[in-house]
Design a protein around this nucleic acid. Sequence first.
DNA 1: AGCGTTTGAATGACATGACAATATGTCGAC
DNA 2: GTCGACATATTGTCATGTCATTCAAACGCT
Lengths: 252, 252
Amino acid sequence: MSSETIWPDEVFSDLDRNGPVPLYYQVASRLERAIRSSVIPAGSRLENEISIAQRLGMSRPTVRRAIQELVDKGLLVRRRGIGTQVVQGQVSRPVELTSLYDDLQSTSHEPTTRTLLHAIIPAPEEIAEQLRIAEGTDVLHLRRVRRSDGTPVAILENYLPAPFTDIAEDDLDTRGLYQVLRARGVAIRVANQAISARRAKGDEADLLGISRGGPVLTTERVVFNDAGEVVEYGIHCYRPDLYRFETTLVAK
Amino acid sequence: MSSETIWPDEVFSDLDRNGPVPLYYQVASRLERAIRSSVIPAGSRLENEISIAQRLGMSRPTVRRAIQELVDKGLLVRRRGIGTQVVQGQVSRPVELTSLYDDLQSTSHEPTTRTLLHAIIPAPEEIAEQLRIAEGTDVLHLRRVRRSDGTPVAILENYLPAPFTDIAEDDLDTRGLYQVLRARGVAIRVANQAISARRAKGDEADLLGISRGGPVLTTERVVFNDAGEVVEYGIHCYRPDLYRFETTLVAK
DNA sequence: AGCGTTTGAATGACATGACAATATGTCGAC
DNA sequence: GTCGACATATTGTCATGTCATTCAAACGCT
């Protein structure tokens, strides 16, 4: 049974070999779109790499790299000696290095933010440790409530070291923290994050509109920039009935 | 300032070019070990790819691939025109496609399991939907308590379709579910997982040894094999004070 | 009909070579 | 002294070629 997918040529009709976008990336994007829109159906087998390369007029490593991108995303499965196959079941976007603001925005909700606290304080011991700075150094302490279409979904607490302590409160009303940081030229690269849960404490229940002592989903995150310096330490808590982390895990 | 790391030759002393282990993988492993043990200190710059390749007697693509592995893991940061740098801050193991059993085992705790329920039932609507099978088809329903050094940490509820409905209760006492599946030749590849939180309900609080109505961390997971078939649907809940998901996020 | 072997097809790994894009540092003109 | 142009270093992209490894199906033998 040679159930190979011969996809419509339109899938790869508008490749731009001179533009700045890498070829492998163009191929990967178009393939992904074709898969997600079921132009290439789930479970079907792809052509082999060599003939794809020939048909698209490019080398095998380029095709391989494009396919590899989608394998890493969990959209395709490769088996040596067999071929490459589209996985069954839709793939969810992985937990990405974006702020909640971006998340909500991209899912066509309208995020709004209310700043509860915006102050420069000397860093307590635990904060200083996370930020890899000396205890007592000035840091910007933020506490905000994030709403989606008017409903509170999260309480965001952030600590930022110099040189970001001068971020204005106004900036954070219309844009997410990460957008502000990016606009200041900060290239965010890696972050260590921990997800857990606990009881709502203090005023959290009231702010989120849940019952006192009810459960909240928590994340703790240390964000690094290009040069490996700590950019931000954030402790967030979410309404678990409105928010959950979806991710696609891929075995290596 | 040319702060290049000239690492000890021992780091790459025992490369085996004839063995079955790929060269790039050997290089990546040794590099990772050297970084994690601070033989190559955090923040230091690596040699450029070409001279590494020359010094190790291999081609640049091979070295590139090795470095790429660690970039994907968040251990290294590359900047065009600049070089490759070790990131500050330790990297935590990402949320992997392993069972809790493997997790606990690898962190040198002693996991034990008590099976509360081991029955074959006709699949209810929601379960059938998740498993992509017809409603009413026989599935294996498992409910287990996982302990670490005697302390209960999680309640694991799993649903398995044919041909895995015959998994014996005994097998699950000494090994994790995924180990059992692997032993049966199942190649697990991708999974969709969602993490959230809720109140403990029913007997969960008692089983976990927490207060009634207290918060639990929950995961919901659909696991696919090589061929894209659903292997398992799992709903787990964890004691949030004893368990959290740590992961390193890497921006693309 | 059943079982072991062979063969073909596909991905995996690695080498070599070339050019492009980008950041940094240097040098010179103003 | 400051700013811009240029040279240099380094990673990014892409092509071509070769051999190894693995799986499945066809084949042949019993």
